[in-house]
């Protein structure tokens, strides 16, 4: 089968690519577009390291066919900071040491941002259940949950 031509918007920029029909969004991001911030931890939607948003919805990019991105707006970790200015979540993750090895961090941040976009004042339980699809083996989640809660509070105070 010949390759598919896909037009999409990634992190606010128009993007075109060719892909095989069976290629996942994650494979295209990583192998065709050099956006390696999204990680493959499992390839089965269990670890969340490949989390992206598609038209604002949080998904595992390993479970999405790249061809499905036609006409959609994709956001990845690479689009989260504005040049030199980190997103408040990114900044808080650094300040509070909410990462150790850092492999889950991109997915964790994308997921956390999707939570705060939807719910600016989550409880600890809400954070924990929202992030239950993002595995971290290093931190025991403690500092991650605190960083998300602290960021939410900081954003609310600024607003």
């Amino acid at each position: 089968m010949s390759k598919l031509h896909i037009s999409t918007i990634i992190n606010g920029e128009p993007e075109e690519f060719l892909c095989e029909p069976e290629e996942t969004m994650l494979d295209v991001l990583r192998d065709r577009l050099s956006l390696t911030g999204s990680k493959e931890g499992c390839g089965s939607g269990d670890c969340g390291a490949c989390s992206i948003t598609v038209d604002g919805s949080l998904i595992c990019s390993c479970l999405m066919l790249a061809a499905e991105s036609e006409g959609k707006k994709i956001e990845t970790i690479e689009g989260m900071s504005d040049g030199e200015t980190l997103h408040p979540l990114q900044q808080k993750f650094l300040e509070e040491a909410a990462l150790q090895c850092g492999i889950c961090t991109p997915g964790m941040l994308v997921a956390a941002k999707a939570l705060l976009d939807e719910n600016p004042d989550p409880t600890e339980t809400e954070v924990r259940f929202w992030l239950a699809g993002n595995l971290c083996r290093c931190t025991g989640y403690d500092k991650i949950v605190r960083a998300v809660l602290d960021t939410a509070q900081e954003i609310r105070e600024i607003k």
Binding site: R30, S34, L35, T36, G37, S38, K39, E40, T76, I77, E78, M80, S81, L86, Q90, F93, L94, E95, A97, L99, G102, I103, T105, P106, L109
Partner: peptide, 23 residues
């Protein structure tokens, strides 16, 4: 002291290169 890690910015922006991230 709880300083910011030297490799931190790369890790929160997706720029850090792990085992599978190079060509």
């Amino acid at each position: 002291k709880r300083t910011i890690r030297p490799d931190g910015a790369d890790k929160v922006t997706g720029q850090a290169t792990f085992g599978a991230d190079t060509t």
